Amino acid sequence: MKMDNLNYSQIKTLLAVYKHKQGNLAALELGVTNCTITRTLNSLRNIFMDSLFIRKSNGLIPTQKTEELIPHAQLLIEQYRLIENQHSVFSPSQSGGHFIIRAYDEFIYAVHKVIETYISPEAPNIRFDVRGLSHDCTQDLVAGSVDFIVVYEGFDDTRLNYEIFSETGDIYILANKEHPIHHETLSLENLSKYSLLEIDNYSDLSCPLLVNLCRDSGLQMDVHGYTDSVATAMRLLSVSDSITLSCNHFTREFVDMMPSVRSRRLPDEIIKSIKEIRSEQRTVGNYILYGNTNNSPVFNWVKSKLVYGLEKEWRTASEK
Score class of each variant (00 low, 15 high):
residue 226 Y to K: 11
residue 244 T to N: 07
residue 268 D to Q: 09
residue 258 M to W: 02
residue 265 R to E: 13
residue 291 G to Q: 13
residue 216 D to V: 00
residue 283 T to S: 15
residue 245 L to Q: 08
residue 268 D to F: 00
residue 210 L to Y: 03
residue 254 F to A: 13
residue 249 H to A: 01
residue 265 R to H: 01
residue 274 I to M: 14
residue 214 C to A: 13
residue 283 T to M: 14
residue 236 L to T: 10
residue 255 V to W: 09
residue 213 L to P: 09
residue 216 D to W: 06
residue 245 L to P: 05
residue 264 R to S: 03
residue 291 G to R: 14
residue 266 L to K: 06
residue 256 D to W: 04
residue 261 V to S: 10
residue 216 D to I: 00
residue 228 D to F: 06
residue 236 L to W: 10
residue 281 Q to T: 08
residue 259 P to Q: 10
residue 224 H to D: 14
residue 225 G to P: 07
residue 229 S to W: 06
residue 287 Y to G: 08
residue 264 R to M: 03
residue 278 R to S: 11
residue 243 I to W: 05
residue 281 Q to N: 12
residue 232 T to C: 08
residue 215 R to I: 00
residue 282 R to F: 04
residue 283 T to C: 14
residue 272 K to T: 02
residue 245 L to D: 12
residue 251 T to D: 11
residue 231 A to Y: 12
residue 270 I to N: 04
residue 255 V to A: 14
residue 249 H to S: 07
residue 244 T to V: 02
residue 231 A to R: 13
residue 285 G to A: 13
residue 261 V to Q: 09
residue 258 M to P: 01
residue 231 A to D: 15
residue 243 I to M: 09
residue 231 A to C: 07
residue 282 R to C: 07
residue 250 F to P: 03
residue 233 A to Y: 06
residue 290 Y to D: 13
residue 260 S to E: 15
residue 269 E to R: 02
residue 212 N to G: 15
residue 275 K to E: 10
residue 237 L to M: 11
residue 282 R to G: 07
residue 209 L to C: 08
residue 235 R to V: 06
residue 239 V to K: 14
residue 250 F to I: 01
residue 209 L to I: 06
residue 287 Y to E: 10
residue 284 V to L: 14
residue 234 M to R: 06
residue 277 I to V: 11
residue 237 L to F: 10
residue 239 V to E: 15
residue 256 D to H: 06
residue 233 A to L: 07
residue 233 A to D: 10
residue 252 R to Y: 03
residue 221 M to T: 08
residue 232 T to W: 12
residue 217 S to C: 07
residue 242 S to D: 15
residue 244 T to K: 00
residue 250 F to E: 12
residue 256 D to E: 14
residue 224 H to L: 11
residue 243 I to A: 06
residue 280 E to A: 08
residue 272 K to Y: 05
residue 258 M to G: 02
residue 246 S to P: 02
residue 228 D to W: 05
residue 261 V to K: 04
residue 273 S to T: 03
residue 275 K to L: 01
residue 209 L to S: 15
residue 271 I to D: 13
residue 241 D to I: 00
residue 223 V to D: 12
residue 255 V to N: 12
residue 259 P to W: 05
residue 231 A to W: 04
residue 249 H to M: 04
residue 215 R to E: 15
residue 263 S to A: 09
residue 214 C to K: 06
residue 224 H to N: 09
residue 236 L to S: 10
residue 223 V to Y: 08
residue 244 T to P: 06
residue 254 F to R: 13
residue 265 R to W: 01
residue 248 N to P: 07
residue 243 I to L: 08
residue 217 S to G: 02
residue 253 E to T: 01
residue 270 I to C: 05
residue 224 H to Y: 13
residue 260 S to I: 01
residue 269 E to C: 01
residue 223 V to L: 15
residue 276 E to H: 03
residue 262 R to K: 13
residue 281 Q to H: 12
residue 264 R to T: 03
residue 216 D to R: 12
residue 212 N to L: 10
residue 288 I to L: 12
residue 249 H to C: 04
residue 232 T to Y: 11
residue 280 E to I: 00
residue 292 N to A: 13
residue 234 M to F: 12
residue 227 T to D: 14
